[in-house]
Design a protein around this nucleic acid. Sequence first.
DNA 1: TAGCCTTATGCAACAAGTTGCATTTGGGTT
DNA 2: AACCCAAATGCAACTTGTTGCATAAGGCTA
Lengths: 176, 176
Amino acid sequence: MSLRAVLLITLQREPGTGYDILQRFKAGLAHVWQASHQQLYRELDRLRGDGLLDCETVPQAERPDRKVYHLTVAGREALDTWLAEPLAASPVRQPLFAKFFAWEHWPSNARRMELTALHRQLTERLATYAAIEREWFADPQALTSAERAPWHTLRLGQRLTETWQEWIEEVLEEGE
Amino acid sequence: MSLRAVLLITLQREPGTGYDILQRFKAGLAHVWQASHQQLYRELDRLRGDGLLDCETVPQAERPDRKVYHLTVAGREALDTWLAEPLAASPVRQPLFAKFFAWEHWPSNARRMELTALHRQLTERLATYAAIEREWFADPQALTSAERAPWHTLRLGQRLTETWQEWIEEVLEEGE
DNA sequence: TAGCCTTATGCAACAAGTTGCATTTGGGTT
DNA sequence: AACCCAAATGCAACTTGTTGCATAAGGCTA
């Protein structure tokens, strides 16, 4: 399961709480991973149960305690193992494509609305990418290769999004 | 849940058994949906329980009976409802991207192997797309718009795959 | 002052997807 | 003769992800 590995990576970069990780997912990691807080808290607890993480409880005045997680040696080893072996191919699931196979039953106004709404969402996504790029990768050549690596993922995200948008435009133009 | 809708669409196009659908998924629908036979059989049974499908059991000499499913009126209505409402955005999960965030712990030979293997898989995928295109969409302009619609999904699949490949090449060139 | 947002965590129930195993017969391979 | 593959279906147990709800305090807004 990749969520575990993603948690190990984010905590290896910097220890933090479930809430912290959720914020990172929402901000700079939005094109990498998304998960609900329930999933995070449950999985962090399991990782601790399996000895891959450990946590220190930091009491706070008038607020719930913060549980700051960090990797154990076993966690670090598990991460290395995961990195060394190639990922399994993820199954294809494209519900939007399925609609194209029911073209004659898909009302054309619903179609137009759905595609334009998606196009708009993709534009917002590109704006988010641009903001992240400005903030973190203003001058990629000035960074070390490890620092620059995440920038590659951002660039692919951008290009895939653009490819989607161009396709939507073509489909909309063809109309019917 | 989209699997239900995908089943309704495929059976609306032509009634069939779980096994039939599995073959369709493996062949022309591979870039749209993938599911295991267990998932299909269970879901078909549930759809029948919910009154969206009905089936005729066709006994076969010396083989398990074939259960040929087809849509009921309720199934047709459920499909129309699903088509009319826009899809929810699917959560982002890119485990490969996560590895880029652990660049310094990702052994460079493992990295090269993983990326080249992925590139090869994408080449195979493109070959599959080309084969489907030759067989079904030799002359897209000669088809009705409903017949041509699935061709769009194939074209986006191709372009996304090409975008991925170009990106992999760039990352590999940049090297360590 | 009533209601929502943020911080911070969690349980319980459910839905979706995976993995392992099982059946039955004919055909092809080693 | 022994083994695997294809056709065709299914159960059981498990993992992963979603949804709904709950707590608790302070700050902001209508």
